[in-house]
Simulated assay, not measured.
Amino acid sequence: GLKQLTPHPWDSLDPNLKVGDKVTGKVVVMADYGAFVEIAPGVEGLIHVSEMSWSQHLRSAQEFLKVGDVVEAVILTLDREERKMSLGMKQLKPDPWEKIEEKYPVGSKHTAKVRNFTNFGVFVEVEEGVDGLIHISDLSWTRKIKHPSEFTSIGEDIEVVVLEIDKENRRLSLGHKQLEENPWDVFETIFTIDSVHEGTVVEIFEKGATVALPYGVEGFVTSKHLVKEDGTTAKVDEKLEFKVIEFSKSAKRIVLSHTRVWEDKKKESDVSAKKAEGESTRKATRKLKSSLEKTTLGDISELAALKSEMEEQEKKKAARKSSKKQADEENPS
């Protein structure tokens, strides 16, 4: 072969070239897993897709490079015997995690891009190479979110606050709801036990229903507390009054009852009726007692007068007897 007549290109490679040196080359072959770059005639190095960017979201090298691109890279490994070389491009840029605490301190606010969902949260990229997770419970203070897709979409920007830094695993814990004050501090003063509020039934399930309340908060109602005064059960989209029967700030939970609203009104009505009836009875009793007292007092007055009259008559009778006796003694027969 003709090529055997000339020295192998690797044998002509600069003997002083070493790991860590910067080289410039042209992309000659592309594959999903990386790009082959020719840094000297006949000498190629592989830039693996994971070494192209600090970002963890590059799925294919074609997203980053194409044949013919001239790139600058750093030598990561060099094996002259095996004639293999691996290169890296991201090493030319500072590792964003080196000074992560300075750029993204806990409590700082940033704009991130939604990259992926899981059942428990949203994965976002704050910048190339800096990823974070917003737990589903940190998306909203008030909404009950079953899946993150109900709240945002992949590719959208979302405002975040840094809650925690995990430098070892290169992950930030982020929050979205923390951009606002905790409204449950205010809700605690509004949705007090036994207070009544207008709400709309938004969902009914096996154990009860979800009710939309004022200020964007939701409450839970068990099935037995959905019963209306006419015996029917509340339906979706129905607007009714609900009484707060349980409030938990820590659990962010408001338990409601529509049944209690009309039951308590009925009880109050019954109590008022009994109270009114009792007052009426008391008034009648007082009137009767007063009448009896007047009658009794009148009777006593009459009896006293009669007694005085009888006593007077007795005195007169006694006087007459005494006078007669005295006359008889003076004139014996």
Results as ranks from 00 to 15, higher is better:
residue 6 T to C: 09
residue 13 L to Q: 14
residue 18 K to S: 06
residue 22 K to T: 13
residue 24 T to V: 07
residue 29 V to T: 12
residue 34 G to A: 11
residue 35 A to Y: 10
residue 37 V to R: 06
residue 40 A to I: 01
residue 41 P to A: 05
residue 41 P to M: 04
residue 43 V to C: 07
residue 45 G to R: 14
residue 49 V to Q: 09
residue 49 V to M: 10
residue 52 M to F: 10
residue 55 S to P: 04
residue 61 A to R: 06
residue 68 G to R: 15
residue 77 T to L: 11
residue 91 Q to A: 11
residue 91 Q to W: 07
residue 99 K to D: 09
residue 104 Y to G: 01
residue 105 P to Y: 01
residue 108 S to P: 09
residue 116 N to P: 03
residue 120 F to H: 08
residue 122 V to G: 03
residue 125 E to A: 04
residue 133 L to Y: 02
residue 137 S to A: 06
residue 151 F to Q: 13
residue 155 G to M: 05
residue 155 G to C: 06
residue 156 E to V: 02
residue 156 E to S: 15
residue 160 V to E: 00
residue 160 V to L: 00
residue 162 V to M: 03
residue 176 H to V: 01
residue 183 P to M: 04
residue 184 W to K: 06
residue 191 F to Y: 04
residue 199 G to N: 03
residue 202 V to I: 10
residue 209 A to H: 07
residue 212 A to N: 12
residue 213 L to H: 02
residue 216 G to D: 06
residue 222 T to Q: 12
residue 228 K to L: 12
residue 237 D to T: 06
residue 242 F to L: 05
residue 246 E to I: 06
residue 256 L to A: 11
residue 256 L to I: 08
residue 259 T to I: 04
residue 260 R to D: 10
residue 261 V to T: 12
residue 265 K to V: 05
residue 269 S to F: 09
residue 277 E to P: 03
residue 283 K to I: 11
residue 284 A to H: 02
residue 286 R to T: 15
residue 299 D to W: 15
residue 304 A to Y: 07
residue 307 K to L: 07
residue 308 S to E: 12
residue 309 E to P: 00
residue 315 K to H: 14
residue 316 K to R: 07
residue 326 Q to C: 09
residue 332 P to R: 13
